[in-house]
């Protein structure tokens, strides 16, 4: 099957470095402290955030961490994809996703400001057309900001695949089925100026990277990884660019939301 045509167009007409159209909505659920829906093309993710609230477990013992604990839980609606796909709640794959996402989000949250607290992040895949993990991370960032939880910066996230000898950003469902290597990256974007470099090194798939003067805590995961270093390098560069693009989208949408909120409260002009 041909994934990239001679003209350089992919199955859905995008070029290699074009992401699908992102969309978002805030405050979709009044029951929780913060919530957001994030869409990448046909992939739809909802995220709900509760907290910061007093930690119920694990706060009392001697030596327990004083900082805020962030927990993630990930679920899929039954109609998210056509059945056979793995990744139902509680299986190994989604457990691993939860822990990696929690690690990525914890690096962006000012955990030191909320001692002995916990923040619960729940993501739900409503529709999976590829890139559900990246979209979940973006939805979680929007929901965290909606809940008013202090953040060091905005985390951008994207997936990159490698098919037909070319790195493809934001792979969709059909391209995921191509079984090429796939890289999921979350990077803390600090905006237009560099931030403090933070080292995150626990051996496995988490790298620390610095590109240009954008800084970053990067959490990434390589699936089906039998790649050469050159392939990885091209995917990695594209992924960082994609993270920056999605972080920019998130930042713009958060500012627009802030202006809209101020307007509905009929405050002085923001």
């Amino acid at each position: 099957m041909e994934y990239v045509s001679f003209e350089g167009l992919r199955l859905d007409g995008r070029r290699a470095n074009e992401i699908r159209r992102p969309r978002h909505a805030f405050a979709i659920d009044a029951q929780c402290d913060g919530s957001a829906r994030f869409e990448l093309g046909n992939t739809v993710i909802e995220c709900r955030v509760d907290g910061p609230s007093e930690r119920k477990f694990g706060g009392a013992e001697e030596g327990a961490s004083e900082a805020c604990a962030l927990t993630c839980s990930h679920g899929r609606s039954a109609f998210a994809s056509d059945g056979v796909q793995a990744g139902r709640k509680g299986d190994g794959r989604s457990k691993q996703f939860e822990s990696v996402l929690a690690k990525a989000l914890t690096s962006a949250v000012c955990v030191d400001l909320m001692p002995r607290c916990e923040v619960q992040v729940r993501t739900t895949v409503l529709c999976d057309d590829g890139g559900a993990r990246a979209a979940s991370a973006c939805a979680a960032v929007l929901a965290l900001a909606d809940a008013g939880i202090p953040l060091k910066g905005i985390i951008g996230s994207c997936t990159v695949g490698h098919l037909d000898g070319e790195a493809l950003i934001d792979v969709n469902r059909d391209e995921e089925r191509g079984r090429g290597p796939e890289l999921w990256t979350c990077a803390l974007s600090a905006g237009d100026v560099p931030d403090d470099d933070e080292n995150e090194d626990d051996g496995e798939d988490h790298l620390m990277g610095a590109t240009g003067n954008h800084i970053t805590v990067i959490v990434e995961e390589l699936e089906r990884g039998k790649t050469t270093m050159e392939t990885f390098k091209s995917m990695h560069d594209l992924a960082l660019a994609g993270c920056e693009t999605s972080a920019r989208y998130l930042r713009i949408s958060l500012r627009a939301r802030t202006r809209a909120l101020a307007a509905t409260r009929a405050l002085e002009k923001f």
């Binding site: 560099p194 931030d195 470099d197 101020a262």
Partner: peptide, 18 residues
């Protein structure tokens, strides 16, 4: 409130607002 100082001494926002 709503800001923090990063490792390089810059003051950064931590929440959305003005």
């Amino acid at each position: 409130e709503g800001a923090r100082v990063d490792a390089l001494g810059r003051v950064r926002a931590t929440t959305c607002g003005r």
